[in-house]
Amino acid sequence: MSSFGKVIGAALGLAAVVTAVMLIQRGNVLGKMWAITYEASSTGNQPISITFQETRGRYPGEDRSVKEHTLPAVQAPWSKEVTVFDGKEARVTVTPPPGGTAGCRILLDGKKVLVENTSAPDKPVVCTATP
């Protein structure tokens, strides 16, 4: 093999190692996040008010703070998929229609129920979980 071939081979080997390290580091960052599904319901599927949290950024260098969203009038039933960093709280609050009740659930990976609650009449219900 020529000197040029050896240099190319070494460069390709180094590129493969660097790529593998970057993928492992990126996987560790993504591995610390959880796929969360919020679900909300109300008596008679009447409109509800919802407040929920999610983590902003997913990658290094991005803002990883928790962002809160408020939806003042949503038709029930409602669901939303978000991401939450490991150790951060997942939270959804559901306010029922006048005279009604509301329910909430938090699912991990769209399947495992982490928490499920139902409100008293005219009272908000809160579901929280820390995955």
Rank of each mutant, 00 (worst) to 15 (best):
A11E: 06
W78L: 11
E116G: 07
K123W: 01
S3R: 11
L71R: 02
Y59T: 07
A120N: 12
T83G: 12
E54T: 08
N117R: 15
A16L: 15
N45L: 08
R26V: 09
Q75K: 15
R105K: 15
Q53K: 09
D122N: 15
K111G: 02
V29W: 04
K32I: 00
P96S: 12
G61I: 05
G99C: 09
P97M: 04
K32F: 00
G27Q: 11
A40G: 14
N28V: 12
A11V: 15
R64W: 07
G99V: 13
P77Q: 12
G13F: 11
V66C: 00
E81R: 13
E39D: 07
D63F: 09
I8V: 15
P77G: 13
Q25K: 14
F52R: 02
V92Q: 04
P60C: 11
T93P: 00
Q53P: 00
E68T: 15
A90Q: 03
G87T: 02
S42T: 08
L30A: 08
L108Y: 03
D109C: 01
A120T: 13
V82G: 08
D63Y: 07
T70V: 15
P47F: 05
K112C: 00
N28C: 01
D86W: 04
E116S: 15
W78A: 10
V74Y: 05
V82N: 06
Q46K: 14
F85M: 09
A15C: 13
A15L: 15
A102P: 04
I24P: 00
K67W: 10
V113Q: 06
S41M: 02
Y59A: 12
